[in-house]
Write a protein that binds this DNA or RNA. Sequence first.
DNA 1: TAGTGGTCTAGACCACAAT
DNA 2: TTGTGGTCTAGACCACTAC
Lengths: 252, 252
Amino acid sequence: MSPNGPPYTRIAASLRAQIASGEYPPGSRLPPHRELARTHAAAQETIRRAIAQLQAEGLIETRGQHGTFVQTRPTIRRIANDHYQRRPTTTGEPTSPFAHSAEASGGHATWDHETTRETADETIATRLAIQPGDPVVVTRYLYRYDGTPTQTAVSWEPAALTAGTPIELPETGTAVGVIPRFDTIGLPIDSVTEDITARPPTPTEVQTLALPPGVAVLTMRRTYHAGETPVETADIVMAGHRNLLTYRHAVT
Amino acid sequence: MSPNGPPYTRIAASLRAQIASGEYPPGSRLPPHRELARTHAAAQETIRRAIAQLQAEGLIETRGQHGTFVQTRPTIRRIANDHYQRRPTTTGEPTSPFAHSAEASGGHATWDHETTRETADETIATRLAIQPGDPVVVTRYLYRYDGTPTQTAVSWEPAALTAGTPIELPETGTAVGVIPRFDTIGLPIDSVTEDITARPPTPTEVQTLALPPGVAVLTMRRTYHAGETPVETADIVMAGHRNLLTYRHAVT
DNA sequence: TAGTGGTCTAGACCACAAT
DNA sequence: TTGTGGTCTAGACCACTAC
């Protein structure tokens, strides 16, 4: 088609066009590497480079030793991190930002969590404005969307703030979510900072999030403040190619 | 070191450790592929896989035919997309969000732009709530940070809104920035939506942003609204590994 | 047993830089 | 001319799955 660039990019472009044209519809299987090597008159390794490129784009997926398949859900799920607003204290059942956005996009959210007590290392101490070695309550989450893992999060809270209160352990009391929890102990959260970046996944993230090779993760570092006091900080990691963070700000 | 995984991941881990330990300090040159192949008792192609992995992590950089170098600036630049607030109309010279954040992190910002008149395709028409084929003012930007390209943006505005006004062409009047410009024609912007995601770069983006292979781009789709009317929409693209988007919201 | 993706190898050629 | 990163090849082996 286009005679520019090295062969593996041309082969990738050719396959990309065949997928876009519907010749290989979503869910269908691509020919085996060795057959593609014959039809494109290239070596198997060259085919693999082309395949790897499409994989990084999230277009196709290789399933173990079963074959190479066109992605069935290139559709991006939307995480509506709208405003951080307290819900009107009506009858609605408590929910989390993740569950809220999942249901808004027509799916079902579940999550596992595990809470431990640890001491703050230097990084966390800085983020929480405490001293290294101070006790913190750490909670690790794995969020699933319709059953498949899509997001991990690790949350840190200074133990000194919640010790002896009903919200000492997240995910156990009646108040769900960071903002309502701290409301109940008279430490109202009034601001949140979020740092967003993209980076390649760690091997662990590849495994837990079932990431295809080459895709980046979108990470958010979020810290809640009550006045000048940081009350919770979290690292949130999700697959870059199937997530969209949406913000709506007022301009004043 | 660690006997797990295929050789190329072990070689990558080994090089990563050598970089972290300071054996290869930032800016230094790694041995040539062929030499690494000898010392690690592997084929050159295997070395290249390991190198490609480190490249995708932003740890090293290959410069044409000069060699492989440890990245000198793994330091992430900060783009402070704080609140969208109108500046107090004092004596300060007009500036842009990009210039503001660049100077906040100690660098110097410059940008080129080119404005054309086009007609809206279906996507842009939807985003601007106009009809396909309606005239739009399109401006393409290339932003540089201390001289090196770091961000591209394309902006669309419905021509019908600005025709015959002093702000018909962006970047020509006295008002700099979207919000001040529309203030001057009595169409005050009061909200902005931003959609953020990560994806692999297009070949064009690889070239214009001088991206090393494997790194993802962080993209923002931003739309300004005056009431319910979209007045400007833009696609902003930056390298994922050296950019950080920072938000600070009030919680109400 | 056969098919599949994944990996490795030894050797080759290219374009480009510096010398 | 030499050295470099980048690419391609033909063939091989492995782990896993399906039959």
